[in-house]
Design a protein around this nucleic acid. Structure first.
Lengths: 218, 218
DNA sequence: CAATAGAATTAGGAGTGCCTAACTTTTGCT
DNA sequence: AGCAAAAGTTAGGCACTCCTAATTCTATTG
């Protein structure tokens, strides 16, 4: 039986492992807000359930089964986020936490109806791609804004969805998915960036820039 | 902390206690699909949490606190049922089970938005009154169809929401909230009723009649 | 009013998922 | 290489909610 906690763990592992790098106990503990000891226990359980491959003291990787489960949960999460924004008109900065609970309670039938009502969308409100029902996900060719060099131009394709404060800040600056931006200048001292965004310009710290992904021009 | 199980228990007690009659362990066990031993344990816990008054071997009654909690959950449940029918176009016979899970996952903010979207409705899809946010509920002056005498006329105000099979059957017969009906005849042998319903007529067993409440004319 | 059927409770145990504290393994530095 | 810090694991517990089996209480009835 796949519990809510199982789903939360595979989802977190999926996010952390990126292009299939192995994920440490402590990074999971930090992400999930529990102790390393708890993570250790859960990973043993997930290993037995063949959701992950666990190598003691060396971290875990998702199995195919684990990956599929993670993508199902992510599909739920992102469709629910979009539903909350589009149908219930919730402010985008609050929908992440809400979806975090609802993703475990919504049946396949309800999810299918939400998907239909929204017209089988491809992106959630923060620009993240929504996996297909069969677990395919569009991989974006993107760069994190804090990794860009001066002169780079592009379009914001995605922002981190989990910190409401950050999201409020980003929308105040106009740094939202779809916005055209260019990197004007980077301060030596603290890596702060001067950004042109549409007709305005703004200054972003590395912390803020790390929450924004862009797809570079050409 | 009020857990999901706590909410399920107070909701079941509320339904079973009617006009404040005391509720037995075994009736709760049957309703909730668990053993009497489990109910006994939970009732002790709810008593300590001051949600119920427990008299050992004599059943429980909700406290004011328990009643308020029950009505909050029922409000959630019924608003969600209506939302599923009205917004997601789910067939009415399936929404009960769905709402049973969602009622524990939806935040106050989302519930408020659902309520607004639906125009602060007074009734759920099965005709049951929706409690106000502060826990007031309209008490209907109603009679169960299996308790009616021949000649009685009235309007269906409510039907049981929990059995999909029954609901499919009722809608096939046209026995839905708002329908005008009259009791033509009752068979001596098995209490089967001949019912006029709009321009049609139908035959209902006591079992089916027990799922239908009517408000009598004048 | 005593026997007994039925209802309720207690005792003991399981699975989940979290914790702290203690211990082991790995890693990084000199 | 050797040692200390950091990372990971195990041991032992707790809260929750369920279960079965055994026991106790209530209510009925002859």
């Amino acid at each position: 039986m796949v519990t809510n906690a199982d789903q939360d763990y595979v989802k977190a592992i999926y996010r952390l492992q990126g292009q299939n790098r192995s994920v440490s106990t402590s990074s999971l503990a930090a992400t999930l807000g529990v102790t390393s000891a708890s993570v250790s226990g859960m990973l043993r359980k997930l290993d037995q359930a063949r959701m992950v491959n666990l190598r003691r003291y060396r971290g875990v990787r998702l199995t195919e089964r684990g990956r599929r489960t993670a993508l199902e949960v992510i599909r739920r999460h992102r469709l629910i986020e979009l539903f909350l924004v589009e149908i219930l008109r919730m402010p985008w900065e609050n929908v992440h936490g809400e979806a975090e609970r609802l993703e475990h309670a919504v049946s396949d039938e309800v999810l299918a109806r939400i998907d239909k009502l929204l017209g089988s969308p491809q992106r959630d409100p923060h620009g993240s791609p929504i996996p297909s029902p069969s677990g395919e996900i569009a991989l974006l060719d993107r760069v994190r804004l804090d990794q860009t060099a001066p002169g780079v131009r592009g379009t914001i394709c995605e922002v981190s969805d989990d910190d409401p404060e950050m999201l409020r800040h980003l929308s105040k600056l106009g740094l939202i998915p779809g916005a055209r931006i260019d990197v004007r200048e980077i301060q030596q001292i603290d890596e702060t960036r001067l950004i042109g965004c549409g007709k305005k310009r703004c200054t972003v710290s590395p912390k803020v820039a790390a929450a924004v992904w862009i797809s570079k021009d050409q």
